[in-house]
């Protein structure tokens, strides 16, 4: 029932090919030119301009990033050398102070020893002086005792 008029009829039918075909082709070709100037070109320009802009920005950002990385590495080496330098200075200072401490200690020791020696000598001389005096007095006393004993007899 549906296919009643499929191929049939001099008039119409599904496969009725006529001047519609070339005219439609011309219409599509015209549409291609219209759409090209109205749609494809302007939109393409905008999109490609933006894509260029984005890719340029990405390249620029990459360059900047590599620069930053280089600077960072530079700073790191600088930091490293500064650290080593500081370490060296600290070590030097420590050695210096050690040396100074030792020197001062030696000096103080020497001084202490000297004054100890002096004191000892003084003590010794005073002891001998005292001993002399004591022996003098002992002599005197013994003389006195002897005289008295002699007198009593």
């Amino acid at each position: 029932m549906l296919a009643f008029n499929f191929f049939g009829a001099t008039e119409g039918g599904l496969f009725d090919i006529n001047a519609t075909l070339p005219l439609m082709a011309i219409q599509v070709v015209a549409l291609t030119y219209i759409l090209n100037s109205l749609f494809f070109k302007p939109v393409g320009n905008v999109v490609e301009k933006r894509e260029k802009f984005v890719s340029n920005n990405i390249i620029e950002a990459k360059n900047k990033l590599s620069e930053v990385k280089k600077l960072e590495a530079d700073l790191l080496t600088q930091l490293q050398s500064a650290r080593l330098e500081a370490q060296r200075i600290v070590n030097e200072a420590e050695n210096e102070s050690d040396k100074l401490y030792k020197e001062a200690l030696e000096l103080a020791n020497d001084e202490a020893n000297a004054s100890k020696e002096k004191a000892r000598l003084e003590i010794e001389s005073q002891t001998s002086a005292a001993r002399d005096q004591l022996s003098k007095q002992a002599d005197y006393l013994s003389e006195l005792i002897v005289n008295r004993l002699i007198l009593e007899k």
């Binding site: 029932m1 549906l2 009643f4 008029n5 599904l14 009725d16 006529n18 001047a19 005219l23 439609m24």
Partner: peptide
């Protein structure tokens, strides 16, 4: 009615006659 509907549905065209050529008007 069914035949009318089917006939309307398939293979019927609105013909435009321009000089010697015939066009399917509904397509345009």
């Amino acid at each position: 009615m069914l035949t009318n509907f089917a006939a309307l549905e398939v293979g019927q065209h609105l013909y435009w006659q321009i000089g010697n050529i015939r066009l399917h008007g509904q397509v345009f």
